[in-house]
Amino acid sequence: MRIRLKIWRQENEHEPGKMMSYTLEDINPHMSFLEMLDTLNEQLLKDGTRPVEFDHDCREGICGQCGIMINGRAHGPLKNTTTCQLHMRTFTDNEEIIIEPFRASAFPVKCDLKIDRSAFDRVIQSGGFIAVNTGQAPEANSIPIGSPEVEAAFDAAACIGCGACVAVCKNSSAALFTSAKIAHLALLPQGQIEAQTRVRNMVNQMDKEGFGHCSNTEACEVECPQQISVLHIARMNYEYNKAQILKK
């Protein structure tokens, strides 16, 4: 296949970037999208130019490091798929592919397609945990939890923190990310004790990081590689309202 690329190039956080065009010949349709970028980089390196920087690591859809806008869609045209799971057979011969970083004020671009998602870490730091020290745990079976409850918690806990929900949201809201953690912990008996402080602190931090409001467009669920449900956002709202009403 022949592929025409338009890629966002930006030296560093402070300098403005621009779109640049490249062409690749002889692309194998079975290549993954990131391998196509590897091939481009090999070519750029041969030409003596700086290769394109992009985020990636496990390349099997679980680490959450990869994430770019491909033809205007987060993680590319397929639903519920990470960038690394996308293959070139999804595109047609001689197609123009437009590649940009995920954009949000809370995710500054560091270089080319690399972005800074440390805002997510700070949201988790503010309360996305159960405060148990090593050694404090009781016998595991002393807290029975129904299978449906645990599966529901798993559905929320499956989040890989890639940021596609923020990238696709018209408001750059991190509601899906934040609510997935709140719901995961709120669904389990272990997480009840801190539920109120957790939701208040996490929502506070989410706002501080400069994410927008959730307007329930549900685009995040469509692009989420782990198919995290938007109902977790409603769950977060519930927990938040409850916490505010019961606040002493």
Binding site: Q136, A137, A140, P144, V150, A157, H184, L188, Q190
Partner: peptide, 16 residues
């Protein structure tokens, strides 16, 4: 024990 206390959702039987 530690992982369950942290909220790791290990698979469970219907009895919990």
């Amino acid at each position: 024990d530690q992982a369950v206390a942290q909220g790791v959702p290990f698979g469970r039987e219907y009895g919990g």
